[in-house]
Design a protein around this nucleic acid. Structure first.
Lengths: 211, 211
DNA sequence: CGAGTACCCGGGACAATGTCCCGGAGCTCC
DNA sequence: GGAGCTCCGGGACATTGTCCCGGGTACTCG
């Protein structure tokens, strides 16, 4: 049976030891090595060749976010699973932006942790319950902003999309073969329907609505 | 051992049958019922009381997205795992906005599917490999947009933040006790530094950069 | 101390943007 | 045959943005 090689990155030796003891008896998972800092992790991945890196975020020196960013950039085949205490929005989204495939809190039960390692190893993305609620909150929050988007005519939607692409009125009129005046009138009507005062706000609204 | 009650929602009877055959022998998972449309699923959840709903997206009548939206709104304790053919951005993010906790492609292997059901049942969020890459692309794409935000002076940041609040130049000048002309000049300088042409784009940039 | 630099404050002249009017053409629905 | 839209444009006007300009202040460097 092929083993999943895991690299542990955490500044607390006791936590690494506990994790090793927890994962040692699991079939299919093998602790390849440990690192106590982001710098050390980056230095080790070359020779250790892990499949999955279990990454803590709060560490002295280079934090887990920066380490993750460099790791996924230099070794795209390695999957990073963040294992952190922090469940605030900033930490979660910073890890995601850095390229982490998963995010699990340190309080996770063994079954959840093992499942997460297996999932991440297969290229799946997985997030613990507390993190999952932040993620869905993020997207359904977006959805909420979408509601109440007024109905626009075909022409108006066409023009709004060109506006959202940061085109000036003359460019739009040229593209559509219209008079500059007509475009400005359409633009004005769009503003009225969206209940906004200017181009800037109209584009913000359109963007938030996934236009 | 407690069973996870799963409700299958898909308009193809053959696919439901295949899925049932696949999941039947799995310990801990139980197919509670099947539905062939979004409407039928909504009608069934009350009496079936599933823990997890396996939801297809492309269905005649009410689609999976709309069904998911109503389902999570009316039954927050039920977790929705989308099982779809579509791997485009629109489908994935529409499902997320609707409140789905997971998204797996129909080509997924049995192990991945079972793992996803278990994860979603525990409140975790999980996404198949193809979907995971879209998700990380979304967030690392955000990160890319954030970089390279030029340095602005104190005054300029002050004015930009008021612009982002959709204030007109006269309002800004009044608020700051400046001449309207001065504000316009500041605004113009901000545009030059941000390398944008108008208010709209400046605000978009500021927003994307978490200003 | 003087020179240079960066920031802040404004004016002038001009182009682009947006507002509130107006009328005409096509189109559907009753 | 209206009644009500959407679309197309004009006129007059205010706002916004651009590219110039100069004066004042504060800071650093030689």
């Amino acid at each position: 049976m092929e083993q999943i090689r895991v690299l542990l990155v955490d500044d607390h030796a006791a936590f690494r030891a506990g994790l090793t003891a927890l994962l040692k008896p699991v079939a299919g998972i093998q602790i390849a090595d440990e690192a106590s800092s982001g710098e050390q992790a980056l230095a080790l991945v070359g020779q250790v060749q892990p499949d999955v890196v279990l990454m803590d975020l709060a560490m002295p020196g280079m934090g887990g976010v920066a380490a993750t960013e460099r790791l996924v950039r230099d070794h795209p085949h390695i999957r990073v699973l963040v294992l952190s205490m922090a469940d605030d929005d900033d930490s979660v989204f910073a890890a995601l932006r850095a390229g982490a495939l998963g995010y699990v809190l340190k309080g996770a039960r063994k079954a959840e942790l093992v499942r997460s390692i297996l999932a991440v190893h297969g290229g799946e993305a997985i997030f613990g319950p507390a993190i999952a609620s932040r993620l869905t909150g993020y997207f359904t929050g977006l959805a909420k902003r979408e509601q109440g988007f007024p109905e626009l005519t075909v022409r108006e939607r066409e023009i709004l999309s060109l506006m959202a692409a940061h085109m000036t009125n003359p460019h739009i009129s040229e593209r559509l073969g219209l008079s500059g005046k007509t475009v400005r009138n359409h633009v004005s009507n769009i503003f009225a329907k969206l209940q906004v005062a200017d181009r800037a706000e109209a584009i913000t609204r359109a963007r938030d609505s996934g236009f």
